[in-house]
């Protein structure tokens, strides 16, 4: 538990969060390991967690019949994976699979939602940070939609 607490306290994502709030988060946290190729998240299942990726790489993908899995985003060590746990009906929209051996800290979404509900200060701090992540994802997705490499940049 001490290891977890220290890791979370030092994580850039939680920079500026008070010690009491960190303690609350630690109460919902656990270490997880995924083998290369192992699913971390399955589309359609209950979104009950998010992850601080500590090591490895995760591919977010969806499966299209006749085409197989299409990878649409990757998440790296140091980044956060998953935000469907914040949005009703709390269900994953995509698959996430470890591209290599991946270690992460999982935070129990249900547990955290309840704590945010009880303590709105914590709720605000969590929301504020996830808005940034969601905004980044939205911007990157818009760029992907633009298919920016389609036009030649060659002179």
């Amino acid at each position: 538990m001490r290891d977890l607490e220290q890791t979370l306290r030092e994580h850039p994502f939680l920079e500026g969060l008070g010690a009491e709030h960190i303690k609350l988060l630690v109460g919902c946290a656990s270490n997880v390991v995924f083998k290369s190729g192992e699913f971390i998240i399955r589309e359609g299942e209950e979104a009950d967690a998010f992850y601080f990726i500590r090591h490895g790489r995760v591919l977010i993908e969806t499966h299209v019949p006749q085409k197989g899995p299409i990878m649409i985003r990757s998440r790296e060590a140091g980044e956060i994976l998953g935000w469907s746990w914040l949005v009703p009906p709390y269900r994953w929209h995509f698959d996430a699979r470890a591209a290599e051996l991946t270690r992460a800290i999982a935070l129990d979404g249900k547990c955290l939602r309840e704590k945010c509900e009880e303590d709105h200060d914590l709720g605000y701090e969590v929301m504020r940070r996830f808005v940034l992540i969601i905004a980044q994802q939205l911007e990157a997705t818009r760029l992907q939609l633009l298919d920016i490499y389609g036009n030649s940049a060659n002179k």
């Binding site: 085409k67 197989g68 299409i70 990878m71 649409i72 990757s74 290599e100 992907q144 298919d147 920016i148």
Partner: peptide, 17 residues
């Protein structure tokens, strides 16, 4: 890469990421 299928295990997303 913007999108990948098959054996790609590298980054997926636009270059700005």
């Amino acid at each position: 890469v913007d999108r990948a299928t098959g054996s790609w295990r590298g980054n997926v997303g636009v270059v700005t990421t």
